[in-house]
Each structure stands twice: as structure tokens, then as C-alpha cells.
């Protein structure tokens, strides 16, 4: 299927936008803010650019493979998936629809990243306690049990109202 020009790129972009995160499949890579760009390279191949959430994110290889597979299924045989390291991913890049889907699936979305002022990064000795709504019952009476969860981007929490544990995407 010969496909060149603008319409091919927009079809490729639409196709890439449907690929989901391997660890949180309720989110697309667009919802997560990981898909940075889709364009047509000089030699006609489709160039897709993604960025890792964390330096050690083990899902990058699966994302790359999933993108290649989805685009191949849509008729794009020549695809190059590139990594972009700058600017570094921020949880602020998770879209509104991504935040809604997270909450619907029992994962509390992140709050806004508090941009550090200039100078050295401040030490944060007191557990920061934003009001986190329980994604199960909606109660604000919740507590952080650990800042490190089952994936690099999540922390662990507990709801004192319904007693259920839940995860939250960390601000970074």
C-alpha cells in the first residue's frame, strides 16, 4: 500500500496515538505524555519519538515494539522509533483524559509538580501530605504508606475510610 505525503503522516499519528502503555493499559502513550512526535523522515519512513518516564523505565522496549507492531498493522513497514531525553518527562504532561482514566481505574492522578526555585534542590524532610482522594470511595481521608510503588512512577497509599490500598502517580 503506497502511502506518502501529509495524509500518511496524519494516519500514522492517529495510529501511534492508539498505542497503550504496557504497564497501565488504560492509558495511551499520548495520555501519558510519552509520545512526543510523529513525522515523516527524509527517506519516507515514519519517525516516532518517545521519551522515558524514568531513566530506568523497563517499559521502553515494549512501547517501542508495540508502536512498530501497530504501525506495521496499519500498513507502515518502515518505522523508526527514536528516544528523546530532553526535555525530561514530567507528570504534568499526563493529559486531562489520562487523569480521568487513571482515577476510573483506581489509580490516583498526580498533583501539579512544584517547580523548584533557582538554586540547589531543597531537601524535603517532612512527608508532603497533599489531600489525595481515594479513587475507590472518594474520601479525602487517606495516607501515603510508601513513596515507592510497584512501578517507578507510583507511590502507595491507604484509604482510612474504605480501608482499601491504592496507588498514585508521583509528581516528577
Amino acid at each position: 500500500m503506497p502511502m506518502t505525503g501529509r495524509s500518511a503522516v496524519s494516519r500514522a499519528r492517529e495510529c501511534a496515538a492508539t498505542v497503550t502503555d504496557p504497564e497501565m493499559p488504560m492509558l495511551t502513550l499520548v495520555d501519558l505524555g510519552v509520545l512526543r512526535d510523529v513525522h515523516e523522515g527524509a527517506d519516507g519512513c515514519i519517525v516516532v519519538t518517545i521519551t522515558p518516564t524514568y531513566s530506568g523505565c523497563p517499559a521502553m522496549a515494549a512501547m517501542r515494539a508495540d508502536l512498530e507492531r501497530a504501525l506495521a498493522a496499519a500498513g507502515f513497514d518502515r518505522v523508526e522509533v527514536r528516544t528523546s531525553l530532553a526535555p525530561a518527562w514530567s507528570s504534568d504532561w499526563i493529559t486531562e483524559s489520562g487523569r480521568r482514566k487513571l482515577a476510573e481505574h483506581g489509580i490516583a492522578p498526580p498533583g501539579p509538580v512544584r517547580t523548584p526555585t533557582s538554586g540547589a534542590v531543597p531537601l524535603n524532610l517532612v512527608a508532603h501530605r497533599p489531600v489525595v482522594q481515594c479513587p475507590q470511595c472518594g474520601s479525602p481521608d487517606t495516607g501515603e504508606t510508601s513513596r515507592f510503588g510497584s512501578t517507578a512512577c507510583t507511590s502507595l497509599h491507604r484509604c482510612r475510610s474504605c480501608g482499601e490500598p491504592f496507588q498514585r502517580i508521583k509528581e516528577i
Binding site: P52, Y54, S55, G56, C57, P58, T145, S146, R147, F148, G149, S150, A152, L156
Partner: peptide
């Protein structure tokens, strides 16, 4: 919880090392 935290910190550093 501490085991998960230590492994996560290790994973971040391993990613930086790579």
C-alpha cells in the same frame, strides 16, 4: 515497602548507568 523502595531507587540508578 522498604524492599520495593530500595529496588526502585536501584532501578533509577541502573537506568542512569545505562
Amino acid at each position: 515497602e522498604e524492599e520495593v523502595a530500595l529496588a526502585n531507587i536501584g532501578l533509577d540508578l541502573l537506568g542512569q548507568a545505562r
